[in-house]
């Protein structure tokens, strides 16, 4: 943009507004890191839990979820810390809201898991509802349709769980995670490099 004093006509003005706004939006699109990280971890944990519990009958099958959290949480926090360091002190309203949505999801998740354990019911349908909700809001904030569709896959998975038992819930969650996290995550990643 070397023509700093070039006077624009209305068509050019409109084009610049549209192009600049599109560019600004794309600049803070998520790169898919969290969706890929948690997508692989959750899908892997679902399959591992299913194998250990339903196939092998291993009593401490639930430890895979602890392992998933031990790997995923520090990786996610470290990634955000490094990104904050790079971006601070620049605020970004969409990113801030995105963070708040997933923070609310994390708190809700802990409560839902505790309640489900106490009530001795499978937490998976409830988790899928919560994940679907957060993914839907994220997809809407980022204006990224694959995430919105991914949220619908999560909700559909939750509804399907009504007709299935706990072990099958794990498989449904694994599939819903692939559809709702991994596919949109890879699409976000690809989009970033376009």
């Amino acid at each position: 943009m070397e023509n700093e004093e070039k006077v624009l006509n209305p068509q050019e003005s409109l084009r610049i507004i549209r192009e600049s706004i599109d560019l600004a939006k794309s600049s803070f699109r998520e790169n898919g890191f969290h969706y890929l990280l948690w997508g692989w971890l959750v899908a892997g944990a679902c399959l591992a839990d299913y194998y250990l519990d339903a196939v092998m009958g291993y009593p401490k099958h639930y430890m895979v979820w602890l392992g998933m959290t031990v790997v995923g949480a520090p990786a996610a926090v470290l990634y955000e810390w490094r990104r904050d360091k790079k971006l601070a002190p620049i605020s970004n309203p969409v990113r801030d809201w995105h963070g708040r949505v997933w923070m609310a999801f994390g708190i809700s998740l802990l409560i839902v898991i505790a309640l489900s354990v106490q009530a001795r019911v499978s937490p998976i349908p409830f988790i899928l509802v919560l994940v679907g909700f957060a993914t839907f809001v994220s997809g809407s904030l980022l204006r990224f349709a694959p995430l919105v569709l991914g949220a619908m896959a999560m909700w559909t998975g939750a509804a399907i769980c009504l007709a299935l038992g706990y072990h099958e819930h794990l498989l449904v969650q694994g599939i819903a995670t692939i559809l709702g996290y991994l596919i949109p995550g890879y699409m976000l990643n690809t989009r970033r490099h376009v």
Partner: peptide, 22 residues
Amino acid sequence: LDPILLSQLRLAIMSHLIVVRE
């Protein structure tokens, strides 16, 4: 039209900031 914004670069800066605020 506002002459301040009838400049390519100034309009691009403002359009960017209208999304990210800062």
